[in-house]
Design a protein around this nucleic acid. Structure first.
Lengths: 239, 239
DNA sequence: GTCTATAGTTCGATAGAC
DNA sequence: GTCTATCGAACTATAGAC
């Protein structure tokens, strides 16, 4: 028993326009994307429901299917929107680093790689913060959807960064560069999602400052890759 | 429309005993745990259904609730069984490394940490291989269940390894040791789940050999931690 | 574009016979 | 300990009025 002719949704006449931001009413697809991003982040694809998303967006449940056809395609739209944003920032930062030539080291390459994601994931507020938990899920998943989305959105940027690594460490073989890159991805992902583990294990000794996180991680990864370079050089020397 | 009095389950008279292994009939709870491990790995907690698990176990659906009370408690049992096995192996390997005193380096600590999980995740066959994908999910999740299970099963071993790291790198501060450990976890997780990404990005140049994976990763991590040690020493020197 | 109403499944869980 | 039968609740998706 629902109260008759209840006007619960945003375009109903005379409802308070809580979706206005600075006088700009946002469009329904965008409202749905934002709500979906938060709900998918909290619950995962299977745990999330289109009903919960519609409720969070303050939108009629049927509009999700009108605008996005299916839950599956909604998820893909959520994933695509933010990953393109991140990779655009990464590309710009990487280009700036590479333009400066040999004066900057390998560390700076990983700062360019990590900063956009860590900033997004560690933001105090804002929509992007939710995406961090989604990408952690997708990037480490082995199901068909995860593999497809990861490949579609991150293969190109991966090749760019692997090339940059090889450029900064002359003679590095393809295997070491790839492994180094994948280790950077793994560390980056672990910094994005606030599992609270650093705080628990260090009893509060771990910094949450984005600059410190990024620079320490970049130094860690750069040193690791140089160790891989030495190992494969040694291996070649033995034969 | 089900065929009348179909004898579809394992304890029905005169069914072929395909669950016998070397003449030992395995118990129902164990059959359920094994099936659940595979299904949860493929589909995640929310994507898995108790019906699918029962079918894979060749067991009546009601028995899941009889033996494990709920889907939730079944998942926890699956997680606990294998994590205890892994951590027992890690503890034994770590003790052997530490007993050898200063003659072995930091790398060996991470070989002890990584080998049990990478071997499990990369096994050609066997049950354990499924657990790898489950732990990747749980360790990177931010939901209440993931945090609780990770803390319950991995806090103790984490403290042991952080202590070992501090033992091998004199003067290393707590923050660097914790970050180094968490980076080792991140890299270890990325090696456990076969996302196929190394093969894709390196066009087949990446080895799948467990020894190579473990030793390269251990060298990478050890070098990264030494870089963190230098950084915090520099920072202290500045003040 | 938005909404109501609902079809058509599928889910976790349990009662009660054996 | 095993099985049948089923409950009640939730789900995605759509048809059709406005």
């Amino acid at each position: 028993m629902v109260e008759p002719t209840a006007l619960r949704f945003r375009h109903s006449r005379s409802t308070p326009e809580s979706d206005d931001i600075a006088g700009t009413r946002r469009e329904t697809p965008e409202l749905i994307l934002d709500a979906a991003e938060a709900i998918f982040a909290d619950s995962g694809f299977d745990g999330a429901t289109t009903r919960a998303i519609a409720q969070a967006a303050n939108v009629n449940p049927a509009l999700i299917h009108y605008h996005f056809k299916s839950k599956e395609q909604l998820f893909e739209a959520v994933f695509a929107r933010r990953s393109e944003e991140i990779n655009a920032r990464r590309r710009a930062l990487l280009a700036a680093v590479m333009a400066r030539g040999d004066e900057v080291g390998l560390e700076e390459v990983f700062v360019a790689f990590l900063r956009p994601t860590v900033e997004l994931g560690r933001a105090r507020s804002g929509q992007g913060r939710h995406y961090a938990r989604i990408v952690v899920h997708v990037a480490s998943g082995t199901d068909e959807r995860s593999r497809r989305l990861t490949s579609a959105r991150y293969d190109a940027i991966a090749r760019d960064f692997i090339a940059a690594i090889e450029n900064r460490v002359p003679g590095l073989d393809r295997e070491a560069a790839t492994r180094g890159y994948l280790n950077a991805v793994a560390i980056g992902l672990s910094l994005m999602a606030p599992t609270g583990r650093a705080r628990t294990l260090s009893q509060g000794a771990c910094s949450d400052d984005v600059d410190t996180l990024v620079e320490d991680a970049a130094a860690f990864i750069a040193a690791g890759i140089k160790a891989l370079a030495r190992r494969s050089a040694d291996k070649r020397g033995q034969t």
